Simulated scan of single mutants.
Amino acid sequence: MISFKNDYSEGAHPRILEALLKSNLIQEQGYGEDSFCLGASELLRERLGNKDLTIHYLTGGTQANLVAISAFLRPHEAAIAAQTGHIFVHETGAIEATGHKVLTSESKDGKLTPAQIQEVLTAHTDEHMVKPKLVYISNTTEVGTVYSKSELQALSQFCREKNLYLFMDGARLGSALCSEGNDLDLADLPKLVDAFYIGGTKNGALLGEALVLCNEALKPDFRYHMKQKGALLAKGRVIGLQFLELFRDNLYFDLAIHANTMAYKLRDELKEAGVKFLAESSSNQVFPIFSDAIVEQLKVNYHFEIWGKVGTQTAIRLVTSWATREEAVDSFMADLKKIL
């Protein structure tokens, strides 16, 4: 079986495994205060062009989202997300479990606009309702779309005018920054959002996300929140070392470029075969639409997500990764053409 189900089916890039092995017997401090975490944070601040950023390492996206959002919000405050947002659909109510409601807005392309956020603000008028305080976006979005610099600037300006925090889920940030037509740089993000994270789990690491706190108001006592929610790892070195390896040269972006390239090959060949799509993705996620009969035949040799019904047909999600082989894409297309 060949899997296009997600971008974390494989383990880790060999360079990361080699670095972990070489450092295995070095004795270090615990809880993210080791030389690897400190070195990675210094390197990331340099890449981000801001020496005042605070960086914390967490195991995965859901943990990063729930720890960050619950730390940023007071008990009566809520987050705003697109209805397709990961915190609303795919995190088992993790944000709500911390006592914070997720308010949503319809979005065909997975992105939020100031007008959509304003609609939510207008609907929440007084202390008899939760108070919207944080805007959650992801880049890439859940349907593979990517925010442009102008879109993010507009959101940033609006959130500052309305005294809202802007938080970016960057689980697939590498894919977004390396996507077709992207005009955002990594160093733009600290200027535009209050906090974001750089996803490692879905871009070649064994596990781990680097959470970057940009707004000074969000920094105090954050490690207390991490500890209370089981996110302050005794062996934090395991995550710090991986980010040190990913960013000491261009490896992080090279891996994202490969994942995107495989997705574009898949997307372009599907288009040539006359296949329609749920969304115009420019990242490493592709959402073709097939009849149920074709989906069942493809399941024989391939793993993928069933995304949802589109009329009488079904949209599936195909995800490529840093380790996807071109032969896997060729195999999928050859089998599909036989079915078609």
Rank of each mutant, 00 (worst) to 15 (best):
L73F: 09
R74V: 00
R74L: 14
R74C: 00
H76W: 09
H76F: 10
H76V: 10
E77G: 01
A78Q: 07
A78N: 09
A78G: 04
I80A: 02
A81W: 13
A82C: 01
A82D: 01
A82H: 02
Q83W: 12
Q83N: 12
Q83T: 14
Q83G: 07
T84W: 03
T84A: 05
G85N: 00
G85P: 00
G85R: 02
H86E: 06
F88S: 02
V89K: 08
V89C: 00
H90Q: 08
H90E: 12
H90R: 12
T92G: 05
G93R: 10
G93E: 11
G93Q: 06
G93W: 13
G93I: 08
A94Y: 12
A94G: 12
A97I: 04
A97C: 07
T98I: 00
T98K: 14
G99T: 04
H100C: 04
H100T: 03
K101M: 09
V102T: 12
V102W: 09
V102S: 09
L103V: 08
L103M: 10
S105Q: 13
E106N: 03
K108W: 15
D109S: 11
G110T: 07
K111W: 13
L112M: 10
L112E: 06
T113A: 09
T113F: 10
P114S: 08
P114A: 05
P114Y: 13
P114L: 11
P114T: 11
A115T: 03
A115R: 13
A115S: 12
A115F: 14
A115K: 12
A115H: 08
A115D: 11
A115L: 05
A115I: 07
Q116Y: 07
Q116E: 12
Q116P: 10
I117P: 00
I117Y: 11
I117K: 06
Q118N: 15
Q118H: 15
E119P: 01
E119G: 06
V120G: 04
V120R: 09
V120T: 14
L121M: 10
L121H: 13
L121F: 13
L121C: 06
A123M: 03
H124P: 14
T125K: 15
T125S: 11
D126T: 08
E127N: 11
E127K: 09
H128L: 15
H128A: 05
H128Q: 14
M129I: 02
M129K: 14
M129V: 04
V130D: 06
V130P: 12
V130L: 03
V130N: 03
P132H: 01
K133M: 07
L134C: 08
L134S: 02
V135D: 01
Y136M: 05
Y136A: 01
Y136K: 01
I137D: 02
S138P: 08
S138Q: 15
S138W: 09
N139D: 15
T140W: 02
T140M: 04
T140Y: 00
T141K: 11
E142C: 00
V143Q: 02
G144R: 08
T145F: 02
Y147C: 02
